[in-house]
Each structure stands twice: as structure tokens, then as C-alpha cells.
Simulated assay, not measured.
Amino acid sequence: MSPVNSYYPARAVVDLGAVRSNVRALREHASGGAEVMAVVKADAYGHGLVPCARAAVEGGATWLGAAQVAEALALRAAGIGGRVLTWLYAPGAPLAEAVAADVDVSVAAGWALDEVVVAARATGRTARVHVKVDTGLGRNGVMPDDLPELLARAVEAQASGAVEVVGVWSHLALADQPDHPTVVGQADVFAHAVRLVEEAGAHLEVRHLANSAATLTSPGVHHDLVRPGLAVYGLSPVPHLGAPADYGLVPAMTLEASLATVKRVPADHGVSYAHAYRTPTSTVLGVVPIGYSDGLPRHASGDLPERPGGPVQVGSGASARTLAVAGRVCMDQVMVDLGPDAREAAGDRVVLFGSGEDGGPTAEDWARAAGTISYEITTRLGARVPRAYVDGED
């Protein structure tokens, strides 16, 4: 790309060394010899599908999870081998391409099994199938009462060579509350489903239930395979129980920008739309050229001191300061009250969130400011924000 086309005043710096390190830490958390599936859906939670998938495999992940079929095919197109599972599709999905690319496919309903069988016969390959069971989340998955009928059809297709049922899986509703009775309840329903699948004659290789939260807090549900997503990227899925460092994790993404306009304004000067924030005294305002079209949540707007906005760190080293967004988050920019004695200038670095190791803001801080979860903060980061890759282990 030309310098003109590649320029952007903000960037997301992703540390692939942190991704590898996080996967190694998650392997340590996995009990009973369970393998690790690194979930790289949603562009690796906003971090970049292919670079992060490669780093996860280098860190010891033996499986990759991609919700969308297109994501799984993109991994194969990039030359990434190993086991890949995809699970979220509607009728008419390119399952033949997935089967031909040796992608494992989840089946959660009779129509899905039918389409996988058609895809397998069209390609002349045996499709590797994981049966998804709804154990209580109320989302994707076959209901337990309907499982025997689906299994009968799946085993019939297996006998014909069209499919091989290699996995059974489900997802927890309250894994972030490990003592909640639904965790045990769903684990019991899953155990019963596994027995049904095994008794039906499936050729099971893996049974998997644990997401990031359960990988870190509920070893009793690890089975053969754990499926961490958020934790792969160094964020805690249970911030009320522990920070990333408590689980040996390091946030992989730093979202940074450069100050644009820096100017002095008088006291009681309105800032941004609706003047939700007014300067308490003569002060210096800084404009950070990144906004809600880039993924910053508008709910993290600030009308200090009543409701601080999302945090930002200006400056570096000993002079670094963590301040808050002043006024409404705009489409392409946010404002920061730098204070009456500010020494920052246009071009100075601003960190919106990062590892937090130097006391700066984190994605979890932004999540709290916006009343959401850190998953949303990274996954909503817009495509126009360039991703730059570094390797902190190199």
C-alpha cells in the first residue's frame, strides 16, 4: 500500500508473543491431559484471524475454533493445518468446501446433518462431525429429547461412510460463576448426552464443554478438550474473580493513537455534542482521532465528574497520565481534558487500552466505563484501524 492509503492516526498493536504465552498458560490450566482449542472467531476477537491462529498453534493449541465457515476456510487458505472446527451456519452454507478442506463441522439439527451428508458425498470425503447439544444455554444445539433421533440418522450416515461422528460438545451459560448450580446441571446433562452418543456407536475422539471461564475455574468439565477464546488474547473472562495476571495471562492488544488538535479553551467551555461536559476552568483540550466508527463504545462518553468516560493514557514513562474521555464519544474522535498545565502536543502518543502493566488503561476498564464486557471492546474494533504485529518473545 502507498503511504497515503496506509496512513491512519490510530493503530492496534498485537503482541503475538503474548498470544503464544497465553496458550501455554491455558495448557497448564487444562486438567487431565485435555487439549486446547484456541477459538479464533470474530477475527480472533478483533486481533487478526490468521496471525493469531498461527501464534496459538505455535503456543501449543492443537485445535482452532472458527464459528463461521468462511473463517475456517480462510485458515486453510492461509496454509494453517491441524484440526479446525466450525459450527455456526444456516442452510445453504458452503459445507462441501469445508469438508474438502478437512474442516470439522458441527451439527445441531437434522437439516444440518442432511446438508453435511450431501456435502460429503459431493466431495467424496468422509465429513468429520461434532454433535452440538443444548444442555441448557438455549442457543445453538439439539435438544436432549431430540438427540436419539439425530444420533440414529448420524450413525446411519456414519455406516455409509458419509460422516464420522468424532465429537460431542456444548456450551455453558454461567461459566463465569463457577459455583452456580447451572454449571453442575449442564455438566450432568452433557455427561448423559455423551453416554447416548457413545452407546449409539459414534467414533468419538473429543468431548468438549469448557470455554475460557470454565478452563480457568472449573477443571471438572474439561473432558478431552477445552475451548478458550477471550483468554487466548490475555483478557480475563472472570474479572470479578481475577485479573489476567492472576491466571498467567497477558493482554495481547494495545490500542493507541496520536493526539491531533491540542488547544487552550476558557472555563465553562462546552465540549462535544450536547455540551455534556463543560470545562471547570481554563484548560487544554486534546483531540484523539478515533471514535465510535472505529469501535469505541459511545456509552463510554464522559460528563465528568459525575460519570467519567473511557480512560486514556497520555504521555509515556514517568510523565504518563491516565485521564478520561471528556464529553460525548464522536464518530471519529474523542476529547480529553488535559488540564490547565498540560504540556502534551499534537503527535504525542495516547493509549486507549493495553496490558495495564504500567498502570495504564485496559480493555476491562473500557468495558466498565461502557457497562459492557471486554469481549465487546476488542471484537468491535473497526476494520479501518490498522493491526500492527509485534513479537514480545522475540
Rank of each mutant, 00 (worst) to 15 (best):
E306G: 10
P280N: 08
A191V: 08
A202N: 10
G242F: 01
R195H: 11
P305E: 10
H299V: 11
H222P: 13
F190I: 07
R227W: 00
A231N: 09
P239S: 08
S272P: 00
A202T: 12
Y277N: 10
L241H: 06
T283L: 11
G309M: 11
Y247T: 00
Y292G: 06
Q313P: 04
V206Q: 15
D176T: 11
G220L: 07
D246G: 11
V221G: 09
A300K: 04
I290V: 15
V232E: 05
V226T: 14
H203T: 15
A214I: 04
V287P: 02
H208K: 09
A210S: 15
L209V: 09
P289C: 11
D176Y: 10
V312T: 05
L225D: 09
V197A: 10
Q313D: 04
P308H: 10
Y247C: 03
T254C: 01
A276D: 10
A200G: 13
V226A: 12
P297F: 12
G310N: 07
H222M: 12
L304T: 07
V312L: 14
E306H: 14
P244K: 01
N211F: 01
A187E: 10
G234K: 01
V184H: 09
A276I: 14
A257H: 02
Y273S: 11
G201D: 07
G286Q: 06
L304P: 00
G309F: 08
G310K: 05
H275S: 15
V232D: 06
P228I: 12
R227E: 11
V221F: 08
P289L: 06
E306I: 13
H275I: 03
T261M: 10
L216S: 10
A187F: 00
L285D: 01
T283P: 12
G201L: 02
R264W: 00
R264F: 01
V238M: 04
Q186Y: 06
A300N: 09
L249T: 03
E198G: 07
A243G: 10
T279G: 03
S258D: 13
A191L: 04
A213Q: 04
G295D: 10
L241G: 02
A274S: 14
D246C: 04
D246H: 09
H240I: 05
L249I: 03
A300Q: 03
V206A: 15
L235E: 13
S282D: 15
P239W: 03
Y292R: 14
V250A: 03
V194S: 05
S301Y: 05
G310Y: 02
K263G: 03
V232N: 06
S236R: 03
D176N: 14
H223Q: 14
A200F: 05
S218R: 11
E306P: 00
V183I: 06
A276K: 07
V287I: 14
S301N: 09
T254E: 06
V226P: 11
R278F: 06
G286I: 07
Q177D: 12
G201F: 01
A260N: 06
G248D: 06
H269M: 01
P244T: 05
L255P: 04
